[in-house]
Design a protein around this nucleic acid. Sequence first.
DNA 1: GCCGTTTTCGGCCCGACTGTTTTCAGTCG
Length: 578
Amino acid sequence: MTQNKFSNQDLAGIFQTIANLLEIKGEVIYKILAYRKAADSLRDYGGSVYDVWQEGNLTDIPGVGKAIAEKIDELYKTGHLEFLDKLSQEIPPSLTEMLEVPDLGPKKVALFWKELDITDLAGLEAAARKGELQNLPGMGAKSEAKVLAGIESLSRRTERTPLWKAWPVAEDLLGKIKQVPGVERAVAGGSLRRMRETVGDLDLLVAAENSSQVMDTFTSLPEVLRVTGKGKTKSSVEFNNGLRAQLWVHPPDRFGTALQYASGSKGHNVRLRELALKRGLSLSEHAFTRQDGSEILCADEEQVYEILGIPWIPPEAREDRGEVQAALDGVLPEFIELSDILSELHTHSTWSDGKVSILDMARAARDRGYKVIAVTDHSPSLGITQGLKIKDIRSQREEIAAAQEALGDSILILQGSEVEIKADGSLDYPDQVLAEFDIVFASLHVSLRQPREQVTQRMINAIQNPNVDVIGHPTGRLIPDREGADLDMEAVFAAATQSGVAMEISAHPERLDLNDIHARQAIEMGIPLSINTDAHSPGELDLMHFGVATARRGWVEARQVINTWEPEKLLSWLRNRG
DNA sequence: GCCGTTTTCGGCCCGACTGTTTTCAGTCG
């Protein structure tokens, strides 16, 4: 047994560093791409790479071949990697800091290092201020100024922006752009359209015959701090808050290929272009081009996939996680849709920290077309929420009955609970009390930083309690500020498979927990899922689409989600759980 | 360095924009 148990993330970081150093060294690009691809693949890998290593199956991981498998093996066996140690002596690792500066790539970084012996950001800034960069070959006064602007921009730069923050910003920008005369369509592409939990830059796409007025409007918006590029088809800006955006303008009859291209992911696009080549076509954002040079234009994105001979793949699933092959094989899942959701099972009322009464929440759920709502107020130990005391459970039941009577059979109201999984691993209500509720969520809110084994055992205790129906927002993470508990998800899912409990995908965009990768793993193990907003007010019921998007990113089908079941089926499932 | 229903060798997506270049290199997505 070794203690060099590098996580998937750790390994991805190591191979990313190798790729960067090799790039500065001037290694052939395809070797670098191979390391990058392996890094991405390891980072996204659903299971534990360590376990795969123990089973001797490393090369089953996409992008991992003989050479990289041997390096992972060395890392797990010895704790370090001789190849990287040697490379670091040759190329100072601090050089990679400079790659973070916008518009600086491996060639320039190598140039600064070799010509001026600059090895880190501080040295680069000093040299730029002294005017030493502009005399280098291929450099000039403008390029030097750009380096300084880039360093400054780096200090301002936000980390990836949470989806929930980027979403309204994009909506606002698109609203302004749509007002420009001649704009036929304006939509978000990129990771925003794919509904990744965080977004790097905003990618905006416009259909218009003439681009100049759109570009002028975009680059002169009041919130724009500086314009980093402006052309006929593409412009890029940086906003005051550090966020960056780029805008493409394409003619309406080419909008399909353009939107497909701008939506990514990069890996997905590479797959499609490979597929196009096999069909004797070259695919770009402008069109398909036949070998004789003639073009096939696509006004709509569906046509792009049609010409490639595969079904349209929803943006959420375009992460190069096997979706193109699945499409070719005809085994893409029937991705769940928002309209499949019939019930909201995790909400709060004034009986704990919710903002409105049970009647108001139920009415709001009914108005959104739901057939069932469960009110799941907190248990008492979570102090700040003023949880529901045991002596009040009966009174709450009476209020639910009154609300039910007021709303008739337009919606079914369930009395649920979000019971706390306490730090000692016990639940916050005794079993006979839990048995009274129609549906029980068990959630972690406290002592999330316990060691892996301890917090995992707490979770497993809750999963094994027959009164618990759903594990709420399993890891307890908050995006971007709080990491989730260090759960051993393999062990958690194994226990869930045994007990038949459902796992939640919290639709609340600060949670999205389970995440896409864990959701996919869960359904592959046959674990039912439940998507809920955890709404504390009626307006938050509208966050459901974020949860559905996360499920789609995890290849989840409607039948695997208990919220899509007709009330009779849901109630019968709950009854059978005891 | 990875990969394979045209390949175990020879490919590996393709174009926009900028700045430095008199025709292209570097960076980005």
